[in-house]
Structures are given as structure tokens and as C-alpha cells.
């Protein structure tokens, strides 16, 4: 269990983390979601004792990270896969970690096999690694000490689709065995499939948290009719707000309500669905809109 309470960290005038509180429960995968520079990495560095917060606390199992004896065997941390001495081989990096934790060398081979880094790849120096290979090495490093708690910053970044799929199953298995997993991403679709809980952060503040279903409540629905204009008029008459989106309409109503309106008006529908990942994406963009670098237009995009 990871507990973050009223965490704040300021760099000069810039408030990187602003009164952030959340918990990660055992047996769940928690997704930490936010645009670039939202404060995810700073929060995770504070959890691992690498950055000292201005106020608030981050504890793991009720203990401050630096009070965990031989922490690598209890908490697996991957903060930046590229943060390695470029001149070391992949195998050497794992060997150094295994030596520090007091693990047998055989564990290094097990981990290399687990993340599918071949023998010849493991002998290469990290400067010759692709980002995906560095991520695999970083994940191997985090799992080396067989920890029950994982803190992973952007672990899917640079992985190929097969790699992302592999990582999802791995983390799911970890959580199912009672492990606690916290992983961050700036890409919603990367973690919405795996995460049981989502924490959305923007501008250093938590803007939403809960399960995917909780977050989607009241997110509306998408509908496409043969005659969109007529349906929009009917919906507006029914007291709903319909805005054009893609080839159809985005409506602040439950699918069943839209269906009733369409049936009553005798309009043929082509497509009707509740807010799904696309809706979540839209919500994510809206929640973090004030913190985005770009002025994101959330309406009118492809559905």
C-alpha cells in the first residue's frame, strides 16, 4: 500500500506538485495519468526518497522509503529507463543491482529471460540500446529483487505493441497475486486497459481519481443518426445538449435516454454507445485542458 498525503514541491516559483494525496491498494494496478510536466515524475521521485518534498509525506506500507531495509527487495522502482551509465552493458547494470541487494547472479539471467533480452543484447552497452530495450532492462531491474510493490514511471514508453501487451499481462499478474502496482503514463489508452484505479494529475494537482467506470459516470454518449440535425433538434427539445462530434453527436445523456428520444421522434440511428475510452480521452483532455501546452479543442475530433 502506497500512501501519499498532502504532498507539495515547489521549484522557485513553479509548483510542480500541489497538495497531492492518494493511496494505491494491494491487489490493484493504479494508473497515474497526466500530460508532460504535470508532476508525475516528481511525485514518484519523492516516493523513492530521491527528492525531498517541501511538505506532506509519501509512505510505503506506512514506512518512509529510506527506512525500508534493502528497499530493492521490497519495492521495485523504475523512474527513467535511460538514466543509466551509457558505457555499461545491460547485464552489468543488473549485476550491480543484484550485488547491491545481495542476490545470486542467477537472478540476473532469470530477469533477462523474463524481459526477453537475448544473451547478445545483454552483452551490448546501453548506449546502443533502443528505448524499448532500455525499458525492458529497467523493468528487469525493478523486478530483480522480487518486490511486492512496483512504482514504474512511463514503463510502456518506447515498447512495441507486443511489449506493451506483455507488460500489461505481467503487471496484471503481479496485482492478482496481491502486489501493489503504480504506473504512470501520459497516454490514456496505454493504461486504461490495465489500471483498476486512475489518478489524473494536471499542473501538479489531482483533477480526478477513481475507477474507469466512476470517472465515466456522466460523461455522456455518442450517437449517429441518419439525420443528425433532426435528432439534435429532438434531443434539444428533450432538454439535452447535443454537440456535433465526428459524423454524429456528443450528448450529455445516457444511451437509453437517447434511444427513447430517437424512437419517439421516429428517427433511425446508425450508432449509439455510451462514453468509452474515447469519452475518457475527451474527459482527460478536458480535465487537464488548463494545464495543456496546446489549446486542445476537444469537440469535433474523430469519434
Amino acid at each position: 500500500m502506497i500512501t501519499v498525503e498532502h504532498l507539495s514541491k515547489t521549484y522557485g516559483a513553479f509548483r510542480a506538485v500541489d497538495d497531492v494525496s492518494f493511496t494505491c491498494q494491494p491487489g490493484t494496478v493504479t494508473g497515474f495519468l497526466g500530460p508532460n510536466g504535470a508532476g508525475k515524475s516528481t511525485t514518484m521521485r519523492i516516493m523513492a526518497g530521491l527528492t525531498i518534498p517541501d511538505s506532506g509525506s509519501a509512505t510505503i506500507g506506512g514506512v518512509s522509503y529510506r527506512d525500508i531495509p534493502n528497499p530493492g527487495t521490497q519495492v521495485g522502482v523504475l523512474l527513467d529507463a535511460s538514466a543509466q551509465h551509457a558505457g555499461r552493458t545491460g547485464r552489468e547494470i543488473l549485476t550491480l543491482s543484484a550485488l547491491t541487494m545481495g542476490l545470486p547472479k542467477a537472478r540476473v539471467d532469470e530477469m533477462l529471460a523474463l524481459v526477453s533480452l537475448s544473451d547478445s543484447e545483454a552483452k551490448r552497452r546501453v548506449k546502443n540500446y533502443s528505448l524499448g530495450m532500455r525499458q525492458r532492462l529497467g523493468i528487469a531491474n525493478a523486478l530483480l529483487g522480487d518486490p511486492k510493490i512496483l512504482i514504474l514511471d512511463e514503463p510502456a514508453n518506447g515498447l512495441d505493441p507486443a511489449g506493451i501487451h506483455w507488460m500489461r499481462s505481467l503487471l496484471r499478474a503481479y496485482a492478482n497475486q496481491g502486489g501493489t502496482v503504480l504506473l504512470s503514463s501520459h497516454l490514456l489508452h496505454e493504461i486504461e486497459i490495465i489500471a483498476d484505479e486512475l489518478i489524473v494529475i494536471g499542473n501538479g494537482k489531482i483533477v480526478a481519481q477513481g475507477t474507469k467506470a466512476e470517472l465515466l459516470q456522466g460523461a455522456g454518449a455518442y450517437v449517429q443518426a441518419a439525420d443528425n440535425a433532426a435528432l439534435a433538434a429532438a434531443l434539444t427539445q428533450g432538454g439535452f445538449t447535443a454537440t456535433p462530434k465526428g459524423d454524429g453527436l456528443s450528448v450529455d445523456a445516457e444511451p437509453v435516454q437517447i434511444g427513447q428520444v430517437a424512437a419517439a421522434a421516429g428517427l433511425a440511428l446508425i450508432e449509439l454507445r455510451g462514453a468509452d475510452s474515447a469519452g475518457l480521452e475527451e474527459m482527460f483532455l478536458q480535465l487537464t485542458a488548463t494545464t495543456q501546452r496546446e489549446g486542445v479543442v476537444t469537440t469535433g475530433g474523430a469519434a
Partner: peptide, 25 residues
């Protein structure tokens, strides 16, 4: 979810990383 699984606790009584191991590394 969390009620069904045994809570993961941090063991604070384990041996830490001895200085000699750090020097070796």
C-alpha cells in the same frame, strides 16, 4: 479487491545493505 488479498506489508526488520557490499559494488 484489497479485502480478499493479504495486505503487503513492508518488513522493517530485514537486514539492510551492508557497507562492505556497497564498497564491492
Amino acid at each position: 479487491m484489497s479485502a480478499a488479498t493479504s495486505p503487503v506489508t513492508i518488513q522493517t526488520q530485514r537486514p539492510g545493505v551492508p557497507f562492505s557490499r556497497l564498497v564491492t559494488v
